[in-house]
């Protein structure tokens, strides 16, 4: 396992480097520049800005400078703010996004699993239908519509919770719920169908025939074997949730890091684009690794380390 971890770490660096390089090329190949705006900017002002941020140097040089800077864990300045650096963006924004994302994740996993398992055990009876209707609403009503409704009714009309901003725990409830609905529904559906598949397998029948108690079968065998697809999708879901949702943070005025991914690109704020991408990629790579490791814990027969055969 240790050797495998080391190997994956090596791969992680290669993967990160590829992401950086491709992103660097992509962002310089799309039209636009960070100082473009509707209107006039004299040549001199434009040149001064280019010079100030080293953008007048050849791309290869810029690329080299960036990697050098990165080696010191410095993501550079934001071209749109003379006040906050990319490091500041991440250091200030990530804890907020992480908090919101984790809360949404907990809701999504808890209710998703419960709904999924209950639905599968009560197949084609009312708990199954209730869970399905909830899931369908969760999936076909996207977070921003749900958020708009929650603000309008729960916060303003009924006055139960604050509208927006990020200043106390009660402020986190509506955004967490808005964010959680979709993954919750996803997990519920996935869990239900995976459970049904497992419940139909021979070994479950065997266990049943052997007279093992029903709840033992469900917990020891069924859930354990059925949870694998949920674990798989959790890798990507978690990476997306903890790095912030642009739309939800925008609607609730939450100072997370979600906006970096979107505004960085619209503003052609090159260091912000690279910084956010690298950060996201690192988290994604890490979580995907964790998922692979988790496979072997859930089902020790699974071999991902490559020694098999």
């Amino acid at each position: 396992m240790f050797r495998y971890t080391l190997k994956r770490l090596g791969w992680a660096i290669v993967t990160l480097w590829a992401v950086i390089t491709i992103t660097f090329l992509l962002m310089h190949s799309i039209p636009g520049n960070p100082f473009a705006k509707e209107g006039t900017m004299p040549e001199a002002v434009y040149n001064n800005l280019q010079h100030y941020y080293n953008l007048d140097k050849p791309l290869v040089v810029q690329y080299g400078l960036y990697l050098k800077q990165l080696a010191q864990f410095d993501f550079g300045p934001s071209l749109k703010s003379k006040t906050i650096t990319v490091n500041d963006y991440i250091v200030n924004g990530f804890p907020v996004s992480l908090h919101l994302g984790m809360q949404a994740l907990v809701i999504a996993i808890a209710f998703g699993l419960i709904f999924g398992v209950i639905a599968s055990l009560n197949r084609n009876r009312w708990p199954d239908y209730v869970s399905m209707v909830l899931s369908i609403i969760g999936i076909s009503v996207p977070s921003f519509i749900l958020a708009t409704f929650l603000i309008n009714f729960v916060a303003v009309e009924w006055g139960l919770l604050p509208v927006a901003t990020w200043s106390s725990w009660s402020h986190t409830v509506l955004p967490s719920v808005s964010l959680a609905m979709m993954p919750m529904a996803y997990i519920a559906r996935l869990m239900r169908s995976s459970m049904l598949e497992v419940l139909g397998q021979d070994y479950i029948n065997t266990a049943r025939a052997k007279g093992i108690a029903k709840h033992m079968i469900i917990f020891k065998h069924a859930i354990r074997n059925a949870i694998l697809p949920v674990v798989t999708v959790l890798g990507i879901i978690t990476a997306n949730l903890v790095t912030g949702s642009f739309i939800i943070e925008q609607i609730f005025g939450i100072p997370g890091m979600g906006e970096m991914f979107v505004k960085g690109i619209f503003n052609r704020d090159y260091p912000v684009i690279l910084g956010s991408t690298i950060f996201y990629a690192a988290i994604l790579i890490f979580l995907v690794f964790i998922v692979d490791i988790a496979y072997t814990f859930i089902d020790p027969r699974i071999k991902i380390t490559g020694e098999s055969k």
């Binding site: 992103t23 619209f266 684009i273 995907v288 991902i304 055969k309």
Partner: peptide, 27 residues
């Protein structure tokens, strides 16, 4: 396939997934 092929294929998918989607869309 598992092993080496699996590793490389999954890393390629990861790279593609990590590159900012918006950049690709604008391109």
């Amino acid at each position: 396939a598992s092993g080496r092929t699996d590793n490389i294929m999954m890393r390629i998918a990861e790279i593609l997934y990590a590159i900012p989607y918006l950049l690709m869309v604008i391109l």
